[in-house]
């Protein structure tokens, strides 16, 4: 403890027990990086599976204006995601998901500003920016809940599709989507939507929980007593990773 009092915020906490600091990163930070690499593999597996499924289905070949939902080909994403809350029946392709992307990027900025304030031991600013980040996280989750709800309930008219039921092909109007039925396209499309955005949403949710914990510990002076705000940085890495994954989901699920 004596060492801490005389040289506050010095590098001692970064030294590993062997007395050196591999890759000039603290133990916790390096382990966070390795965890994120393993998480990259998990998300990649989901996106790779999505790509494989998409390439093994016929693509819609006509004009985008003439596109109609069918389980015979993969849907055009901008025609699936074209609803915005409070604007019922108005076609606004990709607008809502664009807003969600903006919210997540903005919350990444407030997170990195909290990390920067932590470097200066500026508790007030760490608290302020952590609260903004938490708010951004909750807003994103709220948007996702709305998007899921709309996706599950479907459009007013639904889509008429030929499906196999009890060994016979029948025509049936399908509203919305679940894991076995999908009004927007092949059932696999809905399955990937639920799994990929769901797995990402779970990450956002645990990120918000961690951010709340960091905010609480900063606000109660825990990091001042410890002499280091490095925890903000480590959780920040996780939060940026969640943003990063969304950038890829946004491109490969919504744009391409």
């Amino acid at each position: 403890m004596a060492a801490h009092v005389t040289t506050p915020g010095a590098v001692e906490p970064k030294m590993w027990l062997g007395g050196i600091e591999p890759m000039k990163a603290s133990y916790g930070k390096l382990m966070m990086w390795f965890f994120l690499i393993s998480d990259t593999f998990t998300f990649s597996a989901l996106l790779v599976a999505y790509g494989t499924a998409r390439f093994s289905f016929p693509a819609f070949s006509g004009n985008h204006e003439d596109f109609t939902f069918s389980n015979m080909y993969w849907p055009v994403p901008e025609r699936v995601y074209e609803s915005v809350p409070f604007l019922h029946g108005v076609s606004l392709p990709l607008v809502f998901v664009g807003i969600m992307t903006f919210i997540l990027i903005a919350s990444s900025v407030t997170m990195v500003l909290a990390v920067e304030a932590g470097h200066r031991m500026d508790r007030a600013n760490v608290e302020k920016y952590m609260l903004w980040t938490i708010l951004g996280g909750f807003t994103f989750l709220g948007c996702q809940a709305w998007e899921w709800s709309h996706f599950i309930h479907g459009t007013d008219a639904g889509s008429v599709m030929k499906v196999m039921e009890n060994g016979a092909w029948i025509e049936k109007t399908i509203f919305g989507a679940n894991l076995t039925e999908n009004q927007y396209g092949p059932p696999a499309f809905a399955d990937f939507f639920f799994f990929i955005t769901g797995f990402h949403g779970t990450h956002v949710f645990s990120g918000v929980i961690l951010n709340i914990l960091i905010f609480f510990r900063a606000a109660t002076g825990f990091y001042d007593k410890r002499g280091s705000y490095e925890m903000v940085e480590k959780v920040g890495l996780y939060w940026h990773f969640v943003d990063l994954v969304w950038v890829f989901v946004f491109t490969f699920f919504y744009l391409v």
Partner: peptide, 17 residues
């Protein structure tokens, strides 16, 4: 390596198609 995996499985998806 992940980028390679993506490419390999896109080709695989095309072969299934």
């Amino acid at each position: 390596f992940v980028a390679w995996l993506i490419l390999a499985l896109l080709l695989e998806g095309n072969a299934i198609f």
